[in-house]
Design a protein around this nucleic acid. Structure first.
Lengths: 357, 357
DNA sequence: TTGAAAGCGATACCAC
DNA sequence: GTGGTATCGCTTTCAA
């Protein structure tokens, strides 16, 4: 088995304590002795055993906070399932996860939740925020208090967060553009639908899509002006109906936000669901149904479960082993889903409880 | 923080040792006392701390063996990179991974490697095998010796392996069929290419594809008889040329095995690379290049890195915490890759060493 | 500057 | 049946 600090101590004729101080540069050790210890350690390829390390370093109240906004949305419920999974596992290592789910976007409530969790003594915070200035300030405050923050699902750029984990929205838009080209080998008119005009993620998805289609000139795709549907199915329904009236030869619709159900319903009613290709985002129960009904051609998924699952671990690794994430932006895979390669990471049972499959 | 065995001992007025025996049904404890201990533990929601558990249960020589066949292939090199990553991490927990890479398919060498690793005292084995009878027997032998085996990448069905981790080939074929339909909205002739006729995985990929296309009658796709190319690019090149001569209106090629480079080269030379759609398997460096050159429309990836990374962990969890995998067949995600959502999990540097990105 | 020892949580062995 | 104690590998006092 691997070499232990004890063995190095014996080989160098000092005590374990001295070895520890030397190898971790804690000072109070004779430079010559330290050098020899380090040399022997290097020769033997000594790496401190993480389990021993974790055992002694786990504080008696190790708490990590998690705050989710828009918790009522299908995607956030998948994120939440990931958090629960991490909570189960981390509890077994002596870490308590405190989860606060907030319905809708409510900066006020988020700030309250942060304060509450800090009051409860959390050592780190994972948060699915909106990029409000107050939140940014709050994250920077936490940084000063030595409470690392991980943003997930949506980022707060420029804040002092440890890292962000979520989708690369622009690249998601690019991927959608590539798929749209594949779907429409003969070209055609494509309608891009956006959500709220100030939603950064949706805008990036839109821009990635538009930029890429403008480059892929080999395909004769005509872009219609994009329309905001404010994440609402009823608006999306209306827009779809009107666009088809105005452009009877419409070939594809790109839904960068929510609203895909409205789009699909309109197409279904007009008997156009197979002729007009629709690409949307996020693999959740409603979208899986639309895939299976051939209403959606592709869904681009952001691995919501993984976002919820990994973010507490990123904090744990940092707090426990001082291991910073390799990159401040951790992009989850852009998963292309069709009806053939889709499985829900979680499904709600009759009581609305989530189950991991 | 979580409740400890010590606390339960104090509350029930017994010693930690008694608590431990009671909760783990080790016997030698008064039934009444045991009942009270269990009740208190349940009330407090006691879960043994895994870190403490791991520390005491890690044997002084914890060794897990890994054997990879066809190690020279791009996909196996990605698997290997995953194994190396796991080795790094597990080493930090006192587990040594012994990796044997075997070039090509050579049952003789595999059996030797197994013997060698067992001689070195491995407690578990992960293996990317071929489904030979000797190997099956060998796995069953190891089972008798209490050495659990995980198969990865390709399975040995019917053997007493703990589990298999790899692609669901049939479903991969189905996914490919779905994509082919999307690519060819007007239908057309499609050529399916197989590898060796006795390769189970390739056959499943083929059958999933054929079965699904026969069902998707809404699309007017005509299947040409499938051809074996024996995983060779030169044969695939020849087959492609001849098929196009015989069927000038060929619309798509499905490559269930290796040989995609030969296919793409033939198409490229005939100036048909954008007109005839090609779907192939496995995201590795050559295939990524073909994607980027628009020679391949889609690549279906089997997450080779994850296969290599997770299999030692599956053994670790089983050996350390007696935790069996949830299912004997662990299917990795069927990842649909285009040039827009592809990144290599690893890249070889100038010296041929793998690097995780 | 250094060593000895306590302790993290769980397990196993050995007395009683 | 039960409690005490040593142990896993490491960090951290506390004395010296």
């Amino acid at each position: 088995m691997a070499v232990t600090a004890q063995q190095i101590a014996e080989l160098t004729g000092v005590s374990r304590g001295t070895v520890d101080r030397a190898l971790h540069n804690r000072g109070r050790v004779n430079p010559d002795v330290a050098a020899r210890i380090r040399q022997v350690a290097a020769e033997l390829g000594y790496r401190p055993n993480q389990i021993g390390q974790a055992l002694v370093k786990t504080p008696r109240d190790f708490r990590i906070g998690v705050i989710l906004q828009s918790a009522e949305t299908p995607t956030m419920q998948i994120v939440s399932a990931g958090v629960h999974r991490a909570a189960d596992e981390l509890r077994a290592s002596g870490v308590e996860l405190l989860l606060r789910e907030i319905r809708r976007l409510d900066t006020e409530l988020v700030l309250e939740a942060i304060e509450e969790l800090v009051g409860q003594g959390i050592q780190g915070l994972a948060i699915a925020p909106s990029a409000e200035t107050e939140i940014r300030h709050c994250i920077d405050d936490l940084y000063e208090q030595n409470i690392p923050v991980v943003t997930l699902n949506s980022d707060v750029p420029g804040s002092k967060r440890l890292c962000f984990i979520g989708m690369d929205s622009y690249r998601g838009g690019q991927t959608a553009a590539g798929l749209m080209c594949q779907l429409l080998p003969d070209g055609g008119k494509v309608l891009p639908l956006a959500g709220h005009l100030n939603n950064t993620a949706h805008n990036n998805r839109l821009n990635g899509f538009l930029d890429t289609l403008r480059q892929e000139t080999a395909y004769h795709i005509t872009l219609l002006p994009f329309q905001p549907c404010f994440d609402r199915d009823d608006y999306a329904y209306e827009i779809t109906q009107h666009t088809i009236q105005a452009e009877p030869d419409l070939a594809g619709i790109y839904v960068a936000s929510n609203g895909q159900q409205g789009v699909c319903q309109a197409l279904d009613e007009l008997g156009l669901k197979r002729r007009i290709k629709v690409i949307a985002f996020d693999l959740n129960a409603p979208n899986l149904a639309l895939l299976q009904a051939d209403s959606l051609s592709f869904v681009l998924d952001q691995e919501a479960f993984e976002q919820g699952y990994r973010s507490p671990y990123l904090l744990y690794e940092y707090l426990m082993h001082k291991k910073k994430p390799a990159h401040p932006l951790i992009y989850t895979d852009i998963a292309i889903r069709t009806k053939y390669n889709s499985t829900l990471a979680v499904s709600a049972d009759a009581d609305g409880h989530m189950q991991q499959t």
